[in-house]
Amino acid sequence: MTEDRDDKIARAGEYAMGLMTGSDVRRFEDDLSRDPDLRAIYADWAEGLVGLDGDGTPPPASVKTQIDKRLFLGASRTQPRFAWLTAKPMMRGLQVAMIVAASVGVYNYMTGPFYDVQAVAQADTIDFDVRLDVDQRVVLISSLSETLPDGRDHELWIIPDGGTPVSLGVMEPRRRVTVPGDFSFDGALIAVTIEAEGGSPTGAPTTAPIAAVAFTSL
C-alpha cells in the first residue's frame, strides 16, 4: 500500500471520527469533492464505524414535540413575533414556513457548508431561495420565481427575536444584502411581504407575509 493511500485512509478515518478540526477539515472536504477514491474510502469508514454504535435509547416524547414546534407553523416561540401581522387575512394564506438551520461549528461535507444557510420557502405565491452567510453577515437571494404586476415589489425583512422587522430591501435575483452589524441571527425570522414598488414607504411592513422562515442556530 502506498504512502499516499495510507495518508488518504488515515485522513478519511480522522474525518469520519470527527478528529479533524479547522483548516484540516476544509482542506479534506475540498479533496473529497474532487477525489472519488477519497469519497469511497470515506464512505467505507463511515459505514464501518457505525458498527460501533450500539442499540439506541428511546428519547422522551417531549423531544418530538419540541422538534415539531421548531419546524412547523404554530411554534409557540415564534408566534408572538408575528403579532404585527396576525390580524391581516393574508396570514391564513401562508402555506409553508420552514425553519432553516444556521449551523455553526462542525462542517459536514454531506450536509453542506456550516456558514451557509439555505432557505427555500414555498408559499402560494412565491418560491425563493435565500442564503445567509453568518460569517459575512450577508443575505444572498439566488432565485425568485414570481414576478409581480407593475407597481408592486417583494420586500425582504429580517426580524430579530422579539424585535421589529428590519427591511433588507426589495427582492431581486442574485442580490446581496449586508445585515447590520449588531443584528443577532439567533432566533431571527426572515419574511417576505408584497409592497409598493421600491418597498414599503413607511419602513415597516404594510401587508401580511406571504412567506416566513425562522433561522435557528444549530
Binding site: V63, R70, Y109
Partner: peptide, 24 residues
C-alpha cells in the same frame, strides 16, 4: 443529548434533500 437530538432532526428535515448525493 435531548437538545442535540432536536437539532439533529431539524437539520435532517432541512438537509434530507442532500442525502442521495453522498453515497452513504
Amino acid at each position: 443529548a435531548e437538545d442535540a437530538l432536536q437539532d439533529a432532526y431539524v437539520r435532517i428535515w432541512n438537509k434530507a434533500g442532500m442525502y442521495q448525493v453522498n453515497g452513504l
